[in-house]
Simulated scan of single mutants.
Amino acid sequence: MTEQPSTRPTTTPATGSAPAPAPSAGSRELWVGTYPAAGAGTPAGLGEGVWRVTLDVATGGLRAARQVVETPAPSFVAVHPSGRVLYAVGERSEGTVTAFEVHAEGADGPEAVRLEPLATVASGGADPCHLLLSPDARTLFVANYSSGTLAVLPLDADGGFAPEVLASGAPAQVFGHTGTGPDESRQESPHAHFVALAPGAGHVLVCDLGTDEVRRYRVEADGRLTDDGIAATLPPGTGPRHLVFSADGRFAYLVGELDVTVHVLAWDAATATGRPVQVLPAGGTAAAADAATGVAPRVLPSHVTLDGDRLLVGVRAAGVLAELAVGADGLLTPVRDLPLGAGAWPRHHAVVDGWTVVAEQVAGALVTFAPGSEPGTVLRLPAPACVVAVV
């Protein structure tokens, strides 16, 4: 693998607004959310923030890494479809969501881009870890892991927080939940880990790692939500983390973080429910025991994406990106485990212009590779947690 260094620039003071420059021919810009350099669970606000990185779409090379703004523990980010607003969680006990306006100092290249905070509001719970924009970009949904809550943040037409949110400094709605699971170390209470739209966009779904359920909320005409029960119940101890739907909406592919599995759910759009039809190992093998403690780190699958007929699952501690083939019947067949290097901890990944870009949180790197190839470029970056393509 080719390794590339990174640099940390200083943030330029605000000097006005202009449209963000378009990526140069043959390149794509990426937003990267990070944890504090010492990792998840360490004090936030010690210099971490949101980075911008350039991806060469011809070679998969990564360059021009620069920290655009400092903000506490932005472990997940989302982009307004206009490209002019970026949202970032503040993953800490008093959770926050910040909306940043995307600015450019001029038209002299993507390195001129900067982020200016528009507003910071409460996330509706503790340790927000995932964001989802509604299809009409008028609502931002927030999964708060430690409190297990789902929050609803209405937006204005330009992507800023709606007046009611700005006035209260809090979400318009917050939904809690009850229940536990058999894994006492991780399932002592609900843990909302991921928000998704059901096919047809009539329901919002929440993967609840703590209760082994996919929670369901009906989307009303005004964009608000109504609790609508449970869309799917997984075997005890599954720990549902993330999911993705097939292009035709007939199947959901769900990662079980705690039992190290991938579950295939046949999806009934009429009732917005999932029925388990297949379960198989997520990939990877048990990690080696620590030399000092004699204890092996727990293998923990994380993010899942669908790239055509390939399902990709990051598996932390095992340090691999597992590739599974999706058959015409919607079922999965393991293909291979792509090794990501010593110390790899693939928390999140995205497929951008054919290149898979992996955020290796603990190793402190971004890694890229093309379908059918081994990982190629490594770009050192402190504790990357999320990769999103610039709109």
Rank of each mutant, 00 (worst) to 15 (best):
Glu3Phe: 06
Gln4Met: 07
Ser6Ala: 13
Arg8Glu: 13
Pro9His: 04
Thr12Ala: 14
Thr12Ser: 14
Ala14Trp: 14
Ala14Asn: 01
Thr15Ile: 09
Ser17Asp: 13
Pro21Glu: 10
Glu29Ala: 02
Glu29Gln: 14
Val32Cys: 10
Val32Thr: 01
Thr34Asn: 13
Tyr35Met: 10
Pro36Met: 14
Ala38Met: 08
Ala40Asp: 03
Ala40Asn: 01
Gly41Cys: 01
Gly41Tyr: 01
Thr54Asn: 11
Leu55Val: 11
Gly61His: 03
Arg63Ser: 15
Ala65Arg: 00
Ala65Ile: 03
Arg66Asp: 14
Pro74Leu: 09
Ser82Thr: 15
Gly83Asp: 08
Arg84Trp: 07
Ala88Gly: 13
Ala88Trp: 12
Glu91His: 04
Thr96Val: 15
Glu101Phe: 02
Val102Asp: 01
Ala107Phe: 12
Gly109Glu: 13
Val113Lys: 05
Glu116Asn: 05
Leu118Pro: 00
Val121His: 01
Ala122His: 11
Ser123Phe: 03
Pro128Thr: 02
His130Val: 00
Ser134Thr: 08
Ser134Arg: 02
Pro135Ala: 06
Phe141Pro: 00
Phe141Glu: 00
Ser146Met: 07
Thr149Lys: 06
Val152Asn: 00
Pro154Gly: 12
Ala157Leu: 11
Gly160Glu: 04
Phe161Trp: 13
Glu164Phe: 08
Ser168Asp: 11
Ala170Thr: 15
Gln173Ser: 05
Gly176Asn: 13
Glu184His: 10
Val195Glu: 10
Leu197Ile: 01
Ala198Leu: 01
Pro199Asn: 10
Pro199Lys: 12
Gly200Tyr: 12
Cys207Trp: 07
Leu209Asp: 02
Glu213Leu: 15
Arg215Val: 13
Arg215Gly: 10
Val219Asn: 12
Glu220Ile: 15
Asp222Arg: 12
Thr226Ser: 13
Ala232Val: 04
Ala232Gly: 11
Ala232His: 15
Leu234Trp: 03
Pro236Ser: 11
Gly237Met: 09
Gly237Ala: 06
Val244Asp: 02
Ser246Met: 02
Asp248Ala: 05
Gly249Met: 11
Arg250Met: 00
Tyr253Asp: 06
Val255Tyr: 14
Asp259Asn: 14
Asp259Leu: 05
Asp259Gln: 11
Val260Tyr: 00
Val262His: 03
Leu265Ala: 09
Ala266Ile: 04
Trp267Phe: 04
Ala269Cys: 03
Ala269Thr: 07
Thr271Val: 15
Thr273Gln: 12
Arg275Lys: 12
Val279Met: 14
Gly284Asn: 06
Thr285Glu: 14
Ala289Lys: 07
Ala289His: 03
Ala291Met: 07
Ala292Trp: 02
Ala292Asn: 00
Thr293Cys: 08
Val295Arg: 15
Pro301Thr: 15
Thr305Pro: 03
Thr305Gln: 09
Thr305Met: 06
Thr305His: 11
Leu306Trp: 11
Leu306Ile: 08
Asp309Lys: 10
Leu311Ile: 06
Gly314Phe: 12
Ala318Cys: 09
Leu321Ile: 08
Leu321Gln: 10
Leu324Trp: 08
Ala328Tyr: 02
Leu332Asp: 00
Pro334Asn: 06
Pro334Met: 05
Val335Ala: 12
Pro339Met: 07
Leu340Lys: 10
Gly341Tyr: 13
Gly341Ile: 03
Ala342Gln: 13
Ala342Asn: 09
Asp353Ser: 10
Ala359Leu: 14
Glu360Ser: 14
Glu360Asp: 13
Ala363Asn: 08
Pro371Tyr: 06
Pro371Ala: 04
Leu379Trp: 03
Pro382Glu: 01
Pro382Met: 07
Val391Gln: 09
Val391Glu: 12
